[in-house]
Amino acid sequence: MPTKMNIKLLHDEYKKALIRKRRQVLFFQMLIFLLFFALWELSSRLKWIDPLIFSSPSKIWDLFLSFMTDGSLPSHISTTLFETILGFLIGTGAGVIFAAILWWSPFLSKVLDPYLVIFNAMPKVALGPIFIVILGPNMTSIITMGAIIAVIITTIVVYSSFRNVDPNYVKVLQTFGATRFQCFWEAILPSSFPTIISSLKVNVGLAWVGVIVGEFLVSKQGLGYLIIYGFQVFNFTLVLLSLLIIALFATLMYKGVEWLEKKLIKSNE
């Protein structure tokens, strides 16, 4: 049976080509990563760039090790991580709840529409000093910053997805005599899960911005504090170390949301 043999062979070749392609992509990704740090180290040692400002990977690594051994870095990281995750959850949760309230009362949503636009356009970090005065220079203010930065955009995006749910689903429920809450719970909310998840992804980034700026202002603890402290004492190795750690944990959080998305959408199918 020559044809059968051919198909199997072709399929194997196809699979091999796929793997080859994937390896090529991975190879170049690693190459860029290594080249970046190698070039950084090299240009810093050869003084192509100012080592005082741009530091170098080896200096950052040394600082990392010494900070890890005296235990101060883990406490800064856990502070910032705690604030970010809490701010992210509160911001997203409150946004979804506000969207539900707006959906519940069309009158309220009409009344509040211009205020939402104004509040959304305004840079929320500018409110930072006011929070610190009201709530005190502590973790509460920072978490509030992380939450407030995401809440309005979440409200707007999720509310518009609530409104775009096919009205026939609500009609089906109404013909069974469903209450407004049942319509929300059975049709509106579950159909909006994809939108809520994608706003989670945006909010991961936003929460980091809010928390880091909050730590700049409060200047007590956390990675944002390390950045501002390093800047003031002109220790740019410390600034860059904090930046790299933030990049790492922000990516991990984003991946976490992606994992959640996969799980939720899987159960949808």
């Binding site: 096919d166 026939n168 689903y169 009609k171 089906v172 059975e186 049709a187 579950p190 899960f193 159960s267 949808n268």
Partner: peptide, 10 residues
Amino acid sequence: MLQQDYLFPW
């Protein structure tokens, strides 16, 4: 009963 089934996909 509507024109389409409108079964809830989830």
